[in-house]
């Protein structure tokens, strides 16, 4: 599925340029069409493979239902508003977690970028945290905060903050020294130099770090919601959990598609677009 998720990205980056650069209309149209056709084709192939596996009789249909009943169920959940209400709960958690992780990760990153001492002290630890599966924090989180919102947030923040910090530090490392030199000769020093020259120059790399942080926090959040579900808060993770408890395979798969779709949507609509705008503004958008 990983390759399927990567496909829409290219369509997103090609399409806006097709409209912006209207010098060669025919070519632009064929480009944007190719950008849409390829990922749609990939989805069709994936659905066909899924259907073939179901038809092969590998598993009974009540364990592995085909795409049609699952999509029908997904539509039902969408129409009834269940998806919207569950997504509201889950996305509110994601937004809060990402906000806290961004604050912590950015402050850490700034300290590490500004002070080689802090950087020496923390870089190994943060690299370790980044590779550590955030699920392994859950037992401790539950001991500390019991089964509650705090446990979920704890793990989401721990999942995302290191990536954001590391992203900012490496983005600062890649700022052209000439820009910093020029900033200095124009009288920018210390924090002003950082805020007005180094940070803006590092912004594209920082956004890439945020994007990676989002991927980690979304994974952590799903893990968290599967482990900690509160009766009065029917989140997406809780739906997955209950679908499994009730051996509701159609529901399980329908909710998995919801998880996948939200992940792709946020990646493309929020971070992908932000990255593209930043790069295009600086003349860095790659030509195909």
């Amino acid at each position: 599925m990983a390759t399927l998720m990567a496909q829409p990205k290219s369509s997103e980056s090609v399409a806006p340029r097709a409209f912006a650069g209207s010098r060669e209309p025919t070519q632009s149209v064929s480009r944007s069409r190719r950008g849409v056709v390829a990922p749609v084709l990939a989805v069709v192939v994936a659905l066909a493979l899924w259907q073939l596996i179901v038809w092969s009789g590998w598993k009974p249909e009540w364990v592995l239902p085909g795409p049609l009943p699952v999509l029908r169920r997904l539509v039902e959940e969408l129409v009834s508003g269940e998806v919207a209400s569950a997504a509201r709960i889950t996305l509110a958690r994601a937004a809060l977690g990402m906000t806290i992780a961004t604050l912590i990760g950015t402050s850490l990153g700034v300290c590490m970028a500004k002070s080689s001492w802090v950087r020496n002290a923390l870089s190994g630890l943060i690299a370790g945290l980044q590779t550590m599966p955030s699920v392994s924090w859950f037992p401790l989180a539950i001991l500390l905060f019991q089964l509650g919102e705090e446990s979920i947030q704890f793990v989401v923040v721990l999942g995302a903050a290191p990536s954001i910090a590391v992203g900012l530090v490496s983005a600062v490392d890649h700022v052209p020294p000439l820009l910093v030199r020029v900033g200095r000769t124009m009288g920018a020093r210390g924090f002003v130099l950082f805020r007005r020259v180094i940070f803006p120059a590092a912004l594209p790399g920082y956004v890439a770090g945020l994007k990676q942080g989002w991927a980690f926090s979304w994974r952590s959040l799903m893990a968290g919601e599967l482990m900690v579900f509160l009766a009065d808060r029917p989140s997406i993770g809780a739906r997955l959990h209950f679908a499994r408890e009730l051996s509701d395979a159609e529901g399980l798969l329908a909710w998995m598609i919801v998880v996948l779709s939200i992940g792709i949507l946020v990646d493309l609509a929020v971070f992908g677009r932000l990255e593209h705008t930043l790069r295009a503004r600086r003349g860095l958008a790659e030509e195909h």
Partner: peptide, 16 residues
């Protein structure tokens, strides 16, 4: 005071 400097690369800030 501080002299102004110009390099072979314009070194303009690309975000401005």
């Amino acid at each position: 005071g501080q002299p102004a400097v110009m390099f072979q690369d314009s070194a303009l800030f690309p975000w401005l």
